[in-house]
């Protein structure tokens, strides 16, 4: 555990909590892509199956349970409790265009051809692109609520901090995992355009709206 890893985890946790609270307090999931949230629930489910097979630490187990629990709670709020506020017409990204290639890639490029390992690899690949339906939705509507942009910023920052964590681990532990690193780079790059808008607009007190 190093400082980048810890702040990355906390940033991830902050993102998840911000989104849950935003939906709960406003009693609305307007502007939130339910599809991205379903993808994140799939990501956590397929990655954390090792909860059933191995114990690493109390920190590890509790964070995994919190992430996966919050992911399903978010999906529940969007598709059941506040379904009436869900903006399905604008959430039109075709997720099969992500899941099918990512599934194929996980079968082809993995560390070992074992069920849990393939599912772990699938979750790493899927996480890297799971935000696309949300970004697509924002580009379609041309705007995002400020609280939604805070959520996206924390979520993007988390994987960027993990990149620094991997540099640290390579330098001090001689350890690296190419699958995680390449997917983490892709994931972070997808947020770059958003990071730019966040810094130039939201942090200056303006609402995030895209030019028509």
């Amino acid at each position: 555990m190093n400082v980048f890893r810890l702040t990355g985890d906390l940033s991830h946790l902050a993102a998840i909590i911000i989104l849950l609270l935003k939906i709960w307090k406003s009693r609305s999931c307007a502007g939130i892509s339910g599809k991205s949230q379903i993808l994140f629930a799939i990501v956590f489910t397929t990655r954390y199956l090792d909860l059933l097979t191995s114990f690493i630490s109390l920190y590890n187990t509790s964070m995994k349970l919190i992430y996966v629990g919050c992911a399903y709670a978010t999906v529940y709020l969007i598709y059941v409790k506040f379904r009436a506020t869900y903006d399905g017409n604008h959430d039109s990204f075709r997720v099969e265009f992500l899941i099918v290639p990512v599934g194929g890639l996980a079968v082809l490029i993995n560390h070992s051809f074992a069920p849990l390992e393939i599912l772990w690899t699938f979750s790493i690949y899927l996480e890297s692109v799971a935000i696309l339906p949300q970004l697509f939705m924002i580009s379609k509507t041309g705007e995002a609520e400020t609280i939604t942009t805070h959520y996206l910023f924390c979520l993007g920052l988390y994987r960027a901090l993990y990149l620094f964590n991997w540099v640290w681990r390579f330098y001090f532990e001689g350890f690296f995992d190419m699958i995680a690193i390449v997917a983490g780079l892709v994931q972070t790059v997808l947020y770059c355009d958003f990071f730019y808008l966040y810094v130039t607009k939201v942090l200056k007190g303006k609402k995030l709206s895209l030019p028509a």
């Binding site: 985890d9 690493i56 995994k64 849990l116 390992e117 995680a180």
Partner: peptide
């Protein structure tokens, strides 16, 4: 992954 040291990561 399964036999990588990455398992402690989230």
């Amino acid at each position: 992954g399964t036999d990588s040291k990455l398992k402690d990561e989230l």
